[in-house]
Design a protein around this nucleic acid. Structure first.
Length: 211
DNA sequence: ATGACGATTTACT
DNA sequence: GTAAATCGTCATA
């Protein structure tokens, strides 16, 4: 008898505007099953919404469509994994409807399953004293490294995939969610300061402190 | 073909 | 607080 698991989030859950999805993702479980069958998981504690065409911080600004960001145009619930800074991957989940290139960046999770393997994935490049649970997945590129997420998972349909998906969980009460400006988008003019970042209040696993 | 840049992380002062 | 790492991606030519 297989262990009982929470149900996998389906299309209906993801098919909402990116701001709504970013908030709805908080508290839910991100699950990654590796090629050798290991289950790695964590609770989503920080997300950001990217609003597509008008959003000067979005890869799909002005309807830009390239080989890299093609996944943003897929239906809601697909993964958009991009490579940046010559060394890092970041995971987004596509929101809304097909051909509306909006998405939510998963910026941090609180690791709950497979911490030892996550640590192994993170080890090597960093000093051992940086392998505390709180250092494992507290950033968009760190969590991708810990969960072994790279471009091989770009375009993955997370409503059907057995290697990357969201499990339903008790929603976070609205008063426990903080909204603030997104991280690392200083170049985005009027969009730099829009409150499109969502975090669970006072959670120690977030990437950058809320101000 | 080339140049500039980045939805970041890390170590160091 | 600052700066280095490091290269795929994109716009320009």
């Amino acid at each position: 008898m297989a262990a009982r698991r929470a149900s996998k989030a389906g299309r209906r859950f993801f098919r909402k505007p990116p701001v709504d999805l970013a908030a709805a993702l908080l508290g839910r479980t991100l699950v990654r099953v590796t090629d050798d069958g290991r289950r790695l998981a964590g609770r989503i504690v920080e997300t950001e919404a990217y609003l597509g065409e008008p959003d000067l911080a979005a890869h799909s600004v002005h309807g830009r469509r390239t080989e890299r960001n093609a996944s943003m145009y897929l239906d809601a619930g697909h993964a958009y994994v991009y490579f940046t800074y010559g060394m890092h991957f970041c995971l987004n989940i596509v929101a809304d409807r097909p051909d509306v290139p909006t998405a939510c960046l998963i910026r941090a999770i609180e690791p709950t399953e497979g911490l030892e393997i996550m640590g192994r994935h993170r080890a090597g490049k960093i000093s051992p004293d940086r392998l505390r649970p709180i250092d494992l997945c507290s950033g968009p590129a760190k969590l991708c490294q810990a969960l072994a997420i790279d471009r091989a998972l770009d375009g993955e349909d997370m409503t059907r995939s057995d290697r990357l998906f969201i499990e339903r969980a008790r929603p976070i009460a609205p008063e426990r969610i903080a909204r603030c400006a997104r991280i690392g988008v200083a170049y985005a003019g009027a969009w730099t300061d829009k409150p499109l970042r969502f975090v669970i209040r006072d959670n120690p696993h977030v990437s950058v402190k809320v101000r």
